[in-house]
Design a protein around this nucleic acid. Sequence first.
RNA 1: GUGGGUGUCGUCAAGUGGUUAAGACACAGGAUUGUGAUUCCUGCAUGCGUGGGUUCAAAUCCCACCAUCCACCCCA
Length: 421
Amino acid sequence: MLTAAPKGTKDIMPEEIHRWHFVEGKFRRMCENYGYKEIRTPDFEHTELFLRGVGGTTDIVQKEMYTFDDHGGRSITLKPEGTSPAVRAFTEHKTFANVQPTKLCYETPCFRYEKPQAGRLRQFHQFGIEVFGTPDMLADAEVICFAKDFLDEMGIKNVQLEINSVGCPECRPKYREALKDFLRPHYDELSETSKTRFETNPMRILDTKSEFEQELVKDAPMMVDYLCDDCRAAFEDLKANLDAMGIEYVVNPKIVRGLDYYTKTAFEFVSTGIGAQSTVCGGGRYDHLVEEIGGPEVPGVGFGLGIERLLLLMDENGFQFPEPEPVDVFIAVMGDEAKREGLRLMHEMRLSGLHAEMDILSRKVKGQFKYAARLNSRFTVMIGEDEIKGGVVQLKDMDAHEQHEVPLSQLKEKVTELLGK
RNA sequence: GUGGGUGUCGUCAAGUGGUUAAGACACAGGAUUGUGAUUCCUGCAUGCGUGGGUUCAAAUCCCACCAUCCACCCCA
């Protein structure tokens, strides 16, 4: 137990960290190009934020949050998602008073108490972006476009963009009633969870996995048919924007999203390649979330993208990550005097920007060369009594298997030159 | 929360109640005190997820727990 990370958590070990650095670097660069500024919010918030933001009827709030009282008696929750904290910070710092829109991006851990399986962890990580301050579907299109470009850039082929409109406080209640009217005659045939949802959140019944209910729901009224004029126009607008950018999508009227704050636009990038956890990126518009948590009327739209699922998909697509940087020069030593000379040299070379290594396990010469090869070192230099006396060393090119004779005093310069640094 | 699979060295893996738990890879050392391969030799689990139990005898059977994987649910 002491030697196992908690259930549903993972160490990211040195062997795989370059994969993370790679996607993080790409994401950051893309944020710069698209004008998104990074925001870092705490990893925990007042529980109330998520109750209000995510919504009290959602699974996330009802059974998945890591919630505890701190020593000051405050109810604290480890963030289960990235949008609510971003909205809180946006409001707290009165960012709405600045020139709009406000375009934010972040990378954050998220915590949800769930049973782990493929592509699902208790601590996982998300990239996210948010655009505040405009109701225009241009923003929605930009956000979706960002996600698509990023997934493209990561070499992911087998994903599909699905979009829907979930309406607004104007039209959604009417639709809910229509849906309940439709379901009511079949109420007794519904599963237990669906019965509960009938009252709390009937739209969630639409994405049921039960075959019987799927069949039943086939003829149910769809939100898209009940949209108010404003929402309908917005949805058409969005589709026109996506068409104009040549972004392919399918309208999936059953996308509901498990977070209550969404209005109008809802979208997901789904994949067939990573088991049952098929959504790699999900997002949408939230026109009343800022108000909901006590800010002014400011609309927003954004997405969250699961980094672990992204990595899974990249593997699935055979993505070739760039190799980690090799060691520039390895210093093999023999004898106590040479050891110290090696130590001094290694330090000097490191200070001038080279990646230098030496053996610190007292290996024999053969072992040192083997280790140098293992480290993928470009060059290896051998230093013993003779070299120190003569002031000349053999610098071995490990790939070409050739040796260069170099004055010891010129070693750093010679290595730098040969590496073209 | 529900259901199913799996748990033997760092990794892969044999073993299905009976002497000191195969083998491979990896790792370390050596084969005339200075160079990455190959070859050869040597070393490397008093212990088989943990704890109980059955038995003369258990990695092998039973029970519980834990971990892990997969699916449901839900989502990233």
